[in-house]
Amino acid sequence: MPEAAPAPTAPRATVGDSEFDRDTALTRRAPGVYDIDLSAGWTIISAVNGGYLLAVLGRALADALPHGDPFTVSAHYLTASRPGPAVVRTEVVRTGRTLSTGQASLLQYDERGGEVERIRVLASYGDLDALPDDVRTTAEPPALPPMEHCFGPGDGPAPVSGSSAIADRLMLKLDPATLGWALGRPSGKGEMRAWFGLADGRDADPLSLLLAVDALPPTAFEIGVSGWVPTVELTVHVRCRPAPGPLRVSITTRNLAGGFLEEDAEVWDSADRLVAQSRQLARVRLGG
């Protein structure tokens, strides 16, 4: 009996032709002003993920500034964003030979049609390909088990009640050592590590790194706190253009106090290079 033909595999999406690119695409209404319909596909419960929103603003600034690569992006999250129409307003603050700086705000509309600011960003952009190759570092990639020994969102209970649509758009494989919370036995260490990519196979680029730093379950879960952990402020440093292949993301929290915690993230590419770093301040609801 002849062997059955292997099942066809879906083609990998490419940069510029993936769900991430379509859902972060903006329409320029006027110089520095952009319209977008925020996709419900990047939500956790009913709120749009902060990393996806940062990528939207990052794409607008890449168009508005003479340099195309984010080097440092600092965002303050003012109110929760919802799926639906939004406008991004950008302003060029300064342009130089190697770096340009701009600011951007994402706004939505209330029930009376008034604008409500959701996020405000200040960012500096440059050319990652122009950076020198000299690297001197004591940083080391996270020690992750092979991907086949890690677990994705479909392998266990949902981390929060309600919809987590963003999980369907990610290739996320979590280190079992950071999954005690999913078994009701959080370690108390405030650590989260995972293999990361986009579900359609699109390779990472500087804009998708803005998503990667905020796409893992909150470290608060491993501290023993459950529920929504909204971001107050997030700063991302993009260090180099990532090589093709899955990323490794490591996030740690050392201090939860007064209902707030910090998360320090490192993102490593398949060439063992530290391609992005971030720190965010997030709010937690204690007693969960």
Rank of each mutant, 00 (worst) to 15 (best):
T138W: 07
G162C: 04
A139H: 10
P159Y: 00
C150D: 02
G180W: 02
D155T: 10
H149V: 13
P142F: 00
D175G: 07
S164K: 09
A177S: 13
L144E: 00
C150I: 04
S187D: 06
G184W: 01
P186K: 06
M171W: 10
M171T: 14
A182C: 10
G162E: 05
P159G: 04
L172V: 02
G154Y: 11
T137L: 05
A139P: 10
R185F: 11
D168L: 12
G154F: 15
A167S: 15
L174V: 15
E148Q: 14
K189F: 07
L170A: 01
H149M: 12
G154D: 13
P157S: 15
L183M: 15
P157C: 14
D155P: 09
S163F: 09
K189D: 09
L172T: 01
A165V: 05
S163D: 13
R185N: 14
S161V: 15
P142K: 00
L144D: 00
P159F: 05
E140D: 10
P153V: 07
T138C: 12
I166R: 05
R185K: 14
S161N: 13
G162T: 03
V160D: 05
D168H: 10
R185Y: 08
I166P: 06
G188N: 07
G184N: 07
G156M: 12
E148C: 09
L179W: 00
G180L: 07
S164M: 11
W181N: 07
G156A: 14
F151D: 11
L172G: 02
P146G: 03
G156W: 11
A182P: 06
K189R: 15
L170S: 06
D175W: 01
G184R: 05
G180H: 00
G152F: 01
L170P: 08
L174Y: 11
L183T: 15
I166K: 02
V135F: 03
G152W: 01
G152C: 08
G152K: 02
R169F: 06
M147P: 08
G156K: 08
A139M: 08
V135E: 06
G190A: 02
A143D: 02
F151H: 09
R185G: 09
F151Q: 04
G162K: 05
P153K: 01
T178N: 08
M171C: 14
P146Y: 00
A167R: 13
L172D: 01
G190T: 01
P157F: 12
P145R: 00
A139V: 08
T137S: 10
T137F: 03
A182E: 08
P159W: 01
P146C: 04
K173F: 15
L183E: 14
A167G: 14
S161L: 10
S187C: 09
G190W: 00
T137R: 06
T137Y: 02
P157A: 13
L172F: 03
L170V: 02
L144P: 03
P186A: 05
D168C: 12
R136Q: 11
L179M: 12
G152T: 08
V160L: 13
P153N: 04
G180K: 05
S187E: 05
F151L: 14
P153E: 07
S163T: 11
G180Q: 06
S187W: 04
T178R: 02
T137G: 06
P141C: 05
P141R: 02
E148S: 12
